[in-house]
Amino acid sequence: MNIFRLAGDMTHLASVLVLLLKIHTIKSCAGVSLKTQELYAIVFATRYLDILTSFVSIYNTLMKLIFLGSSFSIVWYMKYHKTVRRTYDRDQDTFRHWFLMLPCLLLALLIHEKFTFFEVLWTFSLYLEAVAILPQLVLLQRTRNIDNLTGQYIFLLGGYRGFYILNWIYRYFTEPHYVHWITWIAGLVQTLLYADFFYYYFLSWKNNKKLQLPA
């Protein structure tokens, strides 16, 4: 464990807690894409399949449980909670996210580190996580105005993978044979997808204006 990875995990934890807190306290998920939340639940479900078989540390298992629990409860709130579900604008959140999953699965079957059931699904979860934010970014373009909490959620979510990139650089230079091209490229693509959001988020913060994404 290094400071970059810890910062990444804490930023990631903060992003899901911000979203869960927003939905739980104001009982609204306006501006939040259910499609992205469903993709994240699938990302964690396929990435943490080994939670029962391979034990790395208490921290590792605890965080896996938190990420699994929070992502599935966010999906539950948005789909089934009597008050929250009414605030979900389904006719705006129309990204065909199942079309994202198929290419990720095909790519995982083609490019992976080992051709085993767990490893292919783990690689699938990496590719899927890289694109999981797309429905949310599309929704933002459509709804144009976003509330602070949703903006903070996306900012933290994008930031965590940025910290992970620093972690991979650190590990590359400090651990012999630590080379994971697939993880690195997927992580880089993921972070780059947030680039324009970060740009407009920073502009709105600098000019102290409401965050507006261009149409």
Partner: peptide
Amino acid sequence: NNEAAAHDEL
């Protein structure tokens, strides 16, 4: 790289 190290990250 040994098995566990492969996926010791979240």
